[in-house]
């Protein structure tokens, strides 16, 4: 792969992306249009995240990739291999060792620290998209802070179901200004968005948008005073490490309806097991 530049993208493109990132960090939650490039992986498979990672990675970085919280899922493996090949950066599965973490659909359980960068892959960056399909109109709604419609959606949920029926990609308001889609993370992860010491960058390749949360930025999940936001997860401890504070995957273990719940964050689970914690299904 010597024909390609460090981290695949040419320097010109990286500069363009970095400019978009800086603008995004300066206006937290605002979607900055950028000229997304065609990447050697399909749109929708993390091209936005990959371009952001390519623009921020340096040879000294230690890179971690997770998909659904796990380092071992196929697309995480594929993206990690891509940067091993094109950037030759060191990789890791340990959250605390990584300086750049690219993620799809989860925020790691272990608290992040200053200096770390979390890069999200974003399929649909526009939180108003399913209420208003027109880009020209949604941009105007953001510009004028016309977010009444967003609450109408939540109102309808409560009227129909008794509570807000959005379980992932739960919309948030950033620093009291922009309504933002946190990418399809479960709402369980929403509280971790706020006041994080790490830099959080969001890349949507196909939709050509970048947005960001600078460190220690206030992020509030939309709700009503009398129906406050509640992060939720399966009401079980992890079957392997016994954790009660982590987001769980449900695993079907046999044909007879047998199931168990395990941490979706595999690094978190492995670390706890190595420290001697055991769940009821552990060997």
């Amino acid at each position: 792969m010597t024909d390609y530049n460090f981290a695949y993208l040419d320097e010109q493109t990286k500069r363009m992306i970095r400019r978009a990132l800086l603008k995004a960090l300066a206006i937290p939650g605002y979607q900055v249009p950028f000229a997304s490039r065609e990447m050697p992986m399909p749109y929708g498979w993390g091209t936005g995240g990959v371009q952001v990672s390519a623009a921020v990675l340096t040879p000294e970085d230690r890179f971690k990739v997770i998909d659904q919280g796990a380092d071992g899922t196929t697309n995480a493996v594929s993206i990690r291999a891509f940067f091993e090949r094109t950037a030759g950066v060191a990789t890791t599965t340990a959250t605390h060792e990584a300086s750049v973490i690219q993620t799809r659909h989860r925020i790691p359980e272990a608290p992040l620290r200053e200096g770390q960068i979390l890069v999200y892959q974003v399929p649909i960056p526009e939180p108003l998209r399913f209420l208003e399909p027109r880009e020209s109109e949604t941009r105007k709604m953001h510009e004028l802070e016309e977010y009444g419609l967003m609450h109408v959606k939540l109102y309808e949920d409560i009227a129909r179901h008794g509570h807000i029926a959005t379980s992932y990609a739960y919309p948030v308001k950033v620093e009291g200004r922009y309504v933002m889609d946190p990418s399809p993370i479960p709402k369980f992860d929403n509280p971790k968005l706020s006041n994080s010491p790490a830099i959080q960058l969001f890349g949507a390749g196909r939709e050509q948008r970048i947005y960001a949360l600078p460190p220690y930025c206030e992020v509030v999940s939309l709700d009503f005073e009398d129906h406050p936001f509640e992060p939720s997860k399966a009401d079980h401890p992890c079957g392997l490490c016994g954790a009660t504070d982590s987001y769980l995957d449900e695993v079907i273990v046999d044909d007879a309806g047998g199931r168990m719940f395990v941490c979706s964050d595999t690094d978190y689970c492995d670390t706890r097991q190595a420290a001697g914690y055991r769940g009821k299904d552990a060997a």
């Binding site: 399909p42 697309n75 989860r106 399809p184 196909r206 769980l248 979706s264």
Partner: peptide, 15 residues
Amino acid sequence: GFLEHIKLPHYVDFQ
């Protein structure tokens, strides 16, 4: 790309 991405794992949102 976007059409086919629904083949990717969505365990977390599905959960």
